[in-house]
Amino acid sequence: MTHTTSPPGQRVLAWTPIAVMAVIAVVDVMAGPMIGLLPLVSLGPAFAGLVGGWRRTAVIGVLALLLCVGLGLYNGLFVKPRGYTAMASVAGVTGVGIAAAVARSRREAELAGVRSIAEVAQRVLLRPVPLTAGPVQAAVSYTSAVAEARIGGDLYEVVASPHGVRVIVGDVQGKGLDAVETAAVVLGAFREAAHDEPDLLGLGRRVERSVSRELEGERFVTAILAEIRDDQEVVLLNYGHPPPMLVRRDGTADFPEPPSYALPLGLSAHGADGPEPFRVPFAPGEQLLLHTDGVTEARDRDGRFYPLGERTHLLKEPDAHRALEALREDLVQHTGGPPGDDAAMLLLRYHRHHDGTDAPPGA
């Protein structure tokens, strides 16, 4: 059986009511009955109601009442109304603290329910990518710009289709529920078309039509689609998205750009030409990192962008997931906390030779 321990900050808060009452008792005894510190004993149950449950608040309130009686008898205050007034204030604050603790517990339970629903939505929308698909190994990392956030506007998917391994990484314009809804539309269209369309250009057109039907106004999605087969090449289709990083066997990095940039998904009504698919050599032992602009546009405190091309050494780790986690931690360290925008990274490692044997791990 495993035992969980509370963080130090929570333990300090839990003992605060006892410490406050102890300090008040000591000062009251030392100062004498003329100072009139007895009503301050109610601070104990007041703090308990803010940080503890209703049962703990009730226990602290009973202790506060006993302490109030003891100090009142010691100071001889019950011959005057002061002692009874102090007890009434402690009892009243205890009642309010219990009510506050009950209300806070209900809010926390509701928040826990909302978080569990968000986690389910994340598992449905952003499903875990397969560890291996065709000739590639895959690992994914998602860093939200909002602490405790479970889902956002970045999207990714890997589909092992009859036509090769199809991949998408995208970034929805905007934030909030609208961005999540748009991401769901893009991923739904991609997952269906990835199995049906024989070529990547047809897949992109299917996704574009679906997005154009659903989006309103000037909303759009930047995205990059990739197709990997056993011919040691990757076909890329770029819809206004940052180019991926291709890490060669010798550790050098390339950022393959399209012959001409196309508009993002959802803006086809403007009449511009769609993207042109282009091929890039992708051999065993090489790595392809697809990412959103939350990675390359992440800034440190001095305004410097994250130097992704200088971090290829972090991807030498044989385990793809640990390598991507090291890169994510380096990104967070660069920004001094969560990045200013959601940051998604999808790492693909070509691990199979043309004869079906595996390339050396971490080559």
Rank of each mutant, 00 (worst) to 15 (best):
V51R: 13
L131T: 12
Q333H: 11
F78H: 00
E276L: 01
D196C: 04
Y306F: 15
T222K: 04
H163D: 11
D273G: 04
G32E: 04
L201E: 07
Y74P: 00
L331M: 08
P242W: 09
R328Y: 09
D196K: 02
V146N: 06
W54D: 13
A64G: 14
A64R: 06
A272F: 10
R82F: 12
V186I: 04
Q287F: 01
L203W: 03
A320H: 12
A103E: 15
R115W: 12
P258Y: 00
A262W: 03
P284V: 10
I228Q: 05
Q173R: 06
R328G: 07
K316Y: 14
G188V: 05
R322P: 09
V159E: 15
M245Q: 09
Y84G: 05
S210P: 02
R205G: 08
S141Q: 10
C68Y: 01
V211I: 07
D293M: 06
F278W: 10
G76L: 03
E218V: 06
D250G: 01
D250C: 04
A25G: 04
S141V: 05
G95Y: 13
G202M: 07
D178Y: 00
R150V: 11
V247F: 12
T57M: 14
L225M: 02
P198V: 02
L314K: 11
L126E: 10
I35V: 08
L289Y: 07
D358E: 15
T182D: 13
G70S: 09
D300W: 10
L187F: 03
P360S: 14
L155D: 05
E181P: 00
V27D: 02
G164Y: 09
G340E: 07
T2F: 10
I224S: 00
D196V: 05
M34F: 01
G36A: 00
V158L: 11
A14E: 14
S89T: 03
T357K: 12
E110D: 15
E297T: 03
K316T: 13
V280G: 10
G336F: 07
A184W: 06
